[in-house]
Simulated scan of single mutants.
Amino acid sequence: MIPALVTLLGFQLAGEVASRALGLPLPGPVLGMVALVIAFSLWPALVDVVRPVAQGLLAHLSLLFVPAGVGVVAHLPVLAAEGPAIAVALVGSTVLAIAVGALAFAGVARLTGNSEGEPRHD
């Protein structure tokens, strides 16, 4: 268990150091996760070392949302004041994402000569 935790936290630390040292706009844990995936592909035995701890963390992932929930409750007055703007932004971005996705699908379907959206059987 300790080697797996050291591995996970080591990759997170390496990602954080790389992000800050290089001034990258990506969060350190994301860089660490990318490095961990690369390490998994280079050394498949590493997967077996990390798997038990990763499965344990994933089994209790909902506990990690408790601090975020407490933060939301602690800032309810701010949310109440900014709620309408947040709701408009959420709804607007969702509608825009669906529209762009539909337009992209229609464009690709037109380019491939398939208007029904089904795979071509050439």
Rank of each mutant, 00 (worst) to 15 (best):
V70E: 02
V70K: 07
V70N: 04
V70Q: 00
V70C: 02
V70A: 05
G71Y: 04
G71T: 01
G71F: 03
V72E: 10
V72I: 08
V72P: 06
V73L: 03
V73Q: 04
A74Q: 05
A74R: 10
A74Y: 14
H75K: 11
H75Y: 09
L76R: 02
L76M: 01
L76Y: 03
L76W: 10
L76D: 02
P77A: 09
P77R: 00
P77Y: 01
P77K: 05
V78Q: 14
V78S: 10
V78I: 11
V78P: 09
L79W: 13
L79A: 13
L79G: 08
L79Q: 08
A80P: 12
A80D: 15
A81L: 12
A81T: 13
A81Y: 09
G83F: 08
G83N: 14
G83E: 00
G83D: 05
G83K: 04
G83W: 11
G83S: 12
P84T: 15
A85P: 10
A85D: 00
A85C: 05
I86V: 14
A87M: 08
A87E: 10
V88Q: 04
V88K: 14
V88H: 07
V88W: 13
A89G: 13
L90A: 10
L90N: 11
L90K: 14
L90E: 15
L90P: 10
L90S: 11
V91W: 15
V91P: 07
V91N: 07
V91C: 03
S93D: 06
S93A: 00
S93T: 13
S93C: 03
T94R: 07
T94S: 15
V95S: 09
V95N: 15
L96D: 01
L96P: 02
L96N: 04
L96Q: 04
A97Y: 02
A97W: 05
I98C: 06
I98D: 09
I98Q: 09
I98R: 14
I98S: 07
A99V: 13
A99T: 06
A99P: 04
A99Y: 12
V100S: 03
V100C: 06
G101Y: 05
G101C: 04
G101F: 09
G101S: 00
G101K: 07
G101I: 06
A102W: 14
A102D: 13
A102C: 11
L103K: 03
A104Q: 08
A104C: 11
F105I: 15
F105L: 13
A106K: 00
A106N: 01
A106D: 06
G107H: 08
G107E: 01
V108M: 07
V108S: 01
A109E: 14
A109L: 09
A109P: 09
A109D: 15
R110W: 00
R110Q: 10
R110H: 02
L111Q: 14
L111P: 03
L111H: 11
L111D: 11
L111T: 15
T112R: 13
T112V: 12
T112D: 04
T112N: 13
T112H: 08
T112Y: 12
